[in-house]
Design a protein around this nucleic acid. Sequence first.
RNA 1: GAGGCAUUAGUUUAGUGGUAAAACUUCGAUCUGUGGCAUCGACAUCACCGGUUCAACUCCGGUAUGCCUCC
Length: 389
Amino acid sequence: MIEFKILKTSKKSWARLGVLKTPHGEVETPSLVPVATQAAIKTLPSEYLTQIGTQIIISNTFHLHLKPGEAIVKRAGGIHKFMNWNGPVMTDSGGFQVFSLGFGRDLDLGKIKKFFPGKITDNQSIEKGTQPKKVKITEEGVHFFSPVDGKKLFIGPKESIKIQESLGADIIFAFDECTPPVASREYAKASLERTHRWAKICNQNHKTKQALFGIVQGSRFKDLRKEAANFINGLGFPGYGIGGDLGDNTKDMMDILKWTVPLLDKNKPRHLLGIGYLRDMEDVVSHGIDLFDCVVPTLFARRNVAFIHGKGELSWEKLNLRNTQFIKDLKPLDKKCICFVCTNYKRTYLAHLVRSGEISAMSLVTYHNLHFFNEFVASIRKKIKQGKL
RNA sequence: GAGGCAUUAGUUUAGUGGUAAAACUUCGAUCUGUGGCAUCGACAUCACCGGUUCAACUCCGGUAUGCCUCC
């Protein structure tokens, strides 16, 4: 079980400061949840997570089911022992893979709509009844293929819950369909109704003391989002995820939060699924979000992009360590950063590692980026505490 | 000295009588509940000098350089 304690509610916005208590420790909220898809923060040993301010991580049902299989994780004593991380853990339900391996793969697009020349047009939309090419979505669940070996597999609400119970995370998510950003209203409505039926099934089949979060879908449509928030709120989950496509830009995303957040039980934590640009973080928090997971700090690190302090407080810059200028740069990665990497390594060396294809480049930048993001969120918490947000 | 073959992007190679293709490198950009450590751009007076032709990187001759064979 979890317990969510709100320490302070902002008078200026919907932001709040809280503590989320789990069987594996406490999380100060708002908090970033780094992504450990395959029970690993890529390139980083679990021991390092604490020193970079990580309080909770999220792993993935679909991927762990494929490899190594939940039985193996259970046999090892559950996901915490399996990966030697004794802090709080969430598992995503596999609902995102319905999208990422389905329409996302077909159209080569992410869940925030962007213009991809030649792939989609402005007015293209996915109509009700359409299926992705390789994934088949039915009333009972979803027929997937394994990205590892192409093998077919089926995951529905019951299966997802069962797998997540075997994995043993502190917080688990209901199985949903993450809808594509080009879904028509009719598609989104039909999908939402099915996601709601699945949410009920997840709730009924859930037997353990793990906290099961319901997920609010509804795409970019106001009435559907409100309907979703009301419905999910009515099922009595101990927390909520807000997922699916979140419009075309930050403003749309904020609109969606404005529609949904007020309809959710204010005493329960709200998790914004998959969102975490530094650019949006204050906005997201001021619209009432307590937790959010994002691959940006870790994924960008492996693409040689480091995030560093900008001039002011809560300002930042992006550094592409591949750029020529850094090979001769004797400055630390981020002179305002106190992390292990910034206090010990110079840009010239990191740039060299990047150019030489040394694996440690990814590791060191991942370490720094997570430190930076965690510190960034800590500054936001401080701002709420001081009444500035 | 004679003969043969070769010379195309930084590198390694395609290719065609109508101003060039790929991989890697280099330069830059992108990435939001992570199938891929990826994706998308940029970068060449086709060794040099002549000739044939409406048109030559392509055909012909010469020069240079390299490799091979023979004397």
